[in-house]
Amino acid sequence: MKKQKNKLAGLQKRKAISGYLFISPFILGFLVFMFKPLMQSLWMSFCNVELGAASFNPVFQGIDNYIYAFTVDPEYNRLLVEEITRMMIYSLAIIVFSFFVALILNQKFKGRALVRAIFFLPVILSSGVILGLETDNQLMAALEQTIEQTASNVSITAALENILRTAGVGVRAFEKVFEIIDNIYDVAIASGIQIIIFLSGLQTISSSMYEAAEIEGCTKWESLWKITFPMISSLFLVNWIYTVIDFCMRSDNEVIEKIQDVMISQMKYGLASAMSWVYFVLILAFIGLSSVIISRGVYYYD
């Protein structure tokens, strides 16, 4: 009996060793290229980094960099607040949009594969540098202006905006909604992966549930909220986190641009580290908080 237990322990040990061998590239890479730079940049954020010819020497100076970033730097606070509110609003819009599109694409109709392929296209075409170029495309902006001028007040959204504005209903909230509607292209191109994830979730729901609900007299609208929503609620969490992260790493993110500018053009490594740490901690706190809130509403079927 004892012998057998020993042998099992030996097998487990062997498996543990091979497990560690398998993940050893990650451990090495993590320690060398992630943990060390992370700690170093944390340390640097408290320092004034002087760049020499053959070395760099950080001089400890306390939280001066943080104070500088928040109180002296003219842009940083504003960019931070703007970027985080933009992130929240757009992430929400992206989730709603992709859920909606996934619901439509889950139905059966002709040309579904084509439509799916088109919706997934932006994942490939609007990544990296191309996205940054897309946003400051002045030709398009100029074109848009001409169109608006020639077709003044024909735009439905503009007319609606005017009506709601004069009615004076919750003006500020509506401003944001209109902003999103005007930038629906940004939302659409950022939601490729999310649509696919939702679709995969929708396809795992067995149709017998819907049938049972329909026989019991459940309308489509009710079964959307009572069956579809709970069944894929865990995917909302996945998508939410993915969207937020994706948004933070976009190349047209203004905070990131600011940090890069401080680092590369002004050579203030300490300040750049401090700025990126503040940003990182805020994002992490935001993701943590929102996932806790969302995971309360997540329903696990099995």
Binding site: F30, M34, Q40, I245, Y269, S273, I287
Partner: peptide, 20 residues
């Protein structure tokens, strides 16, 4: 740690990697 790697924007460590 893997999840952390997903979460950490590479820009956070870029200045230090640069020097590294």
């Amino acid at each position: 740690c893997v999840i952390m790697v997903i979460l950490i924007p590479p820009q956070t460590i870029s200045s230090s990697l640069f020097l590294h």
